[in-house]
């Protein structure tokens, strides 16, 4: 087996450039929308998680800009943009 990697360490291998602001946000008032829970299952970077209260928490660090959460949760729930030009993940292999 290659080194067993946890997700954070694996994301740490990528090149990320910081953005001025978060490019994905849960729309105000949608924090409890059931559609958000889908993101927990589909996000390849594991950035969505359920807390003790059963609510979805989200961090942006490590976002691969794959678009999966936008498709799964929909644009009523997420305000989804790409990061600014030159920011975000920069793949060296792709």
């Amino acid at each position: 087996m290659s080194e067993p990697l946890n997700l954070k360490a694996k994301l740490g291998l990528n090149v990320f450039k910081e953005d001025k602001e978060r490019h994905i946000n849960i729309k105000p008032g949608m924090e409890k929308d059931p559609r958000l829970k889908r993101a927990v299952l589909v996000c390849p970077a594991g950035l969505y998680s359920l807390n003790d209260k059963g609510e979805v928490e989200f961090t942006i660090d490590g976002c691969l800009e794959c678009g999966t959460c936008r498709i799964a949760c929909g644009v009523e729930v997420l305000d989804w943009k790409y990061p600014h030009g030159g920011a975000g993940v920069q793949f060296r292999f792709g």
Partner: peptide, 23 residues
Amino acid sequence: FKNRPEIAPLIKGGQTAEYSAHV
């Protein structure tokens, strides 16, 4: 998937260099 006995020996000793995803 990576840990399946059919896969693990194929990537043994390898270094993961990047993790990516896309729709």
